[in-house]
Design a protein around this nucleic acid. Structure first.
Lengths: 212, 212
DNA sequence: ATGAAATACAGGGAAATACCCTTTTAGATT
DNA sequence: AATCTAAAAGGGTATTTCCCTGTATTTCAT
């Protein structure tokens, strides 16, 4: 039995092209394609047709690749996500991986590499190009200039955010203005793809920044 | 060496009377007295005179006994709190115990029982009258009419509250109106003495209602 | 020294939250 | 049938949060 693939991309032309490539692979066949993340989640819930692997664009309208991957990772942990993007900046790559993607390819990927990536994700669980691996390594070492790594002061803030204090009160404790504190919050939300303080608290506890 | 006691009560007459009684006990002496919780916390921080045990009134202005006990329990876990109150309703008793009080006495307590309570709290870690014990047992069994125990539906809500969903979104998931969901929230805040959703998330995780 | 960052702070506005208090609905009790 | 009760829903408001944009000041590398 072939592995089933779903292609999610708002660019019709591209998703069809990719679908075509996938159909040509020995071990894969296209289950269906979607124009954005919401469509994918809906289709999974409606038709119960669950793919083995999703080729996911990152920049899409309505529900983008990062959020979609987060949802999938949570509700369908068995579905592998392989990101396929034009973006190759560090931020996006890390966000996508953090969301649970098993690999990250540039959109100008060659046919052979796409096949190899799909296969390795299914069989080894992940596939990473040198670019991505470098980003991963950098994110650990470049503690200073990496955009996605939390700074000391941000960690301080997060600990306060894990209490019942308002931002005004946190600002007093940190000897900063409330607006600055809100700036920290926004920066962290952006880095970690969070919607609100509740998400931050859960993140902090999961990652042992705050131990309740 | 005698155990040091602090009496916290806004009623001057009463706190002096209690202080007098304590001074008469073999194993205890009064370190100081305070008119409310805030005064106690300030005095501890300013003078660093840390009592072994606090005889705490529940109804006080500025900072009441429940909140004061919560603070103490968190920042000075070694200080024992023995609640001393006229209130004997189930709600108040449970809130006080939940906040970390080691015992709960009515204000018409006899001298001998006060001494016994102080001693047992210091040596066994707790002292509970039959009234309080009954409340505790009821809180486990009377799942229906107990005011301070979380109901199934409230537990459901809490799990949702530990996500990034807004109350509106939670309402959809629970097939309720947003207003009803807010009603659950308010009821829970009241029961658990919480200020906001952040506090609820922390509570839920501490008590394994939600496992991140 | 000079432009490029990171940092601290601010304003404004829409959305969400928290805190009131009242009413409706539906079930159970007597 | 009348009554009581709990759950559900609504109304109003102040505060807080979220998100955006913009501006000095400091720090730092070239």
């Amino acid at each position: 039995m072939k592995y089933s693939v779903v292609v999610v991309d708002d660019h019709n032309l591209l998703s069809q092209a990719i679908g075509g490539l996938v159909e040509g692979f020995e071990e894969f066949s296209v289950l269906y394609t979607c124009k954005n993340g919401q469509e994918l989640l809906d289709k999974i819930n409606d038709t119960k047709k669950i793919p083995d692997i999703v080729l996911m664009d990152v920049n899409m309208p309505i529900l983008n690749g990062i959020e979609t991957t987060q949802h999938l990772h949570k509700d369908f942990p068995d579905i592998k996500v392989l990101a396929l993007s034009i973006e190759e900046d560090e931020k996006t790559i890390l966000k996508m991986l953090r969301a649970g993607a098993k690999g990250y390819l540039m959109k100008d990927v060659k046919k052979a590499e796409l096949e190899k990536a799909l296969l390795e994700v299914m069989e080894k669980g992940f596939y990473h190009t040198n670019t991505v691996t470098k980003v991963l390594v950098d994110s650990l070492t470049d503690t200073e200039n990496s955009h996605l790594v939390l700074k000391d002061r941000e960690i301080d803030f997060i600990k306060y955010a894990c209490t019942e204090m308002t931002y005004r009160e946190i600002a007093e404790k940190m000897f900063l203005s409330p607006k600055t504190v809100e700036g920290y919050r926004d920066a962290i939300f952006e880095k970690l793809n969070l919607r609100n303080r509740t998400g931050l608290v859960i993140y902090a506890i999961k990652n042992k920044i705050f131990i309740p």
